[in-house]
């Protein structure tokens, strides 16, 4: 038996919005640790890893590990029926083939439940080893989103370089080229407005902008994003979900043959 009660239901709504354009179908894994997911996009270029820790739920009951295959677009449709202030409860029976989403409004005078059929999906989990990254940059998530959007009006790919000077985003296209440099800046009013650059080694990698733009759908989940880069490794963009966990996106680079 599985029963997860999330008081801040809007978090789950935002999580689905952040993933549904990247991934069509995915297995949600539920264990004593929490509610998690690892899934790749159809071209196996990008991967999303989600963790909502059990402690973040008001009530968390998971008698045995359960894997639930769902179409993320359908889950998103159901969650759109929940109000932003609603409490969301996810329920499933062991070995059952359905999941129920229950929404309670704050006044507790409207309770809705939606039952959805589960899917049998092949699990394609990748082992992601802990790595020492050459550079780790934390910056406001809105700034990162703005940069990806602006550059994609000029080019399709972006070169992200980290040096002592800062993090540089460069693109080129038919109309010309563009460079945006963000320098380390810790003299800000609020810590989440800072740009913090941790660099062990200079690094420069090329990525497809359309995937980065898709990752920025997670912007509303966190005021900051942490971008980790190493030559010969996929980029990681991590959005922390306050008190609960994270959503991490991995993106394979473009490399000269």
């Amino acid at each position: 038996m599985l029963e997860l009660r999330l008081v801040q239901g809007s978090l789950l709504k935002k999580v689905l919005e952040a993933m549904k354009d990247l991934v069509t179908d995915a297995n949600f894994d539920c264990s004593a640790t929490g509610f998690s997911l690892q899934a790749m996009d159809s071209s196996h270029v990008a991967l999303v890893a989600l963790l909502l820790r059990s402690e973040g739920f008001e009530h968390y009951r998971c008698d045995r590990n359960i894997t639930m295959g769902m179409n993320l677009n359908n889950v998103s449709k159901l969650l759109k029926c929940a109000g932003n202030d609603d409490i969301i409860t996810i329920k499933a029976d062991d070995g059952g083939d359905t999941v129920t989403f229950m929404f309670e409004n704050p006044k507790q005078d409207k309770i809705s439940d939606f039952e959805m059929k589960l899917m049998d999906l092949d699990s394609e989990h990748l082992g992601i080893p802990d790595a020492e990254y050459h550079a780790i940059v934390r910056m406001p998530s809105l700034e990162f989103s703005r940069i990806c959007k602006d550059l994609s009006s000029i080019g399709d790919t972006v070169v992200i370089s980290v040096t002592k000077e800062g993090i540089k985003f460069s693109t080129r296209g038919d109309i010309g080229n563009a460079n945006i440099v963000c320098r380390q800046n810790t003299t800000v009013d609020k810590p989440e407005e800072a740009t913090v650059i941790q660099m062990n080694e200079a690094v420069s990698l090329t990525f497809a902008l359309r995937y980065l733009n898709s990752f920025t759908k997670a912007t509303s989940l966190s005021e900051t994003v942490t971008i980790s880069l190493s030559s010969e490794l996929p980029l990681v963009a991590e959005y922390k979900i306050a008190d609960m966990g994270y959503i991490k996106f991995y993106l394979a680079p473009k490399i000269e043959d």
């Binding site: 790749m40 990008a46 989990h125 394979a252 680079p253 473009k254 490399i255």
Partner: peptide, 14 residues
């Protein structure tokens, strides 16, 4: 032109 890599080049299936 740089070629788009896939994740399996970097991470092995579990």
């Amino acid at each position: 032109k740089p070629k788009q890599q896939v994740l399996s080049r970097f991470f092995a299936p579990k």
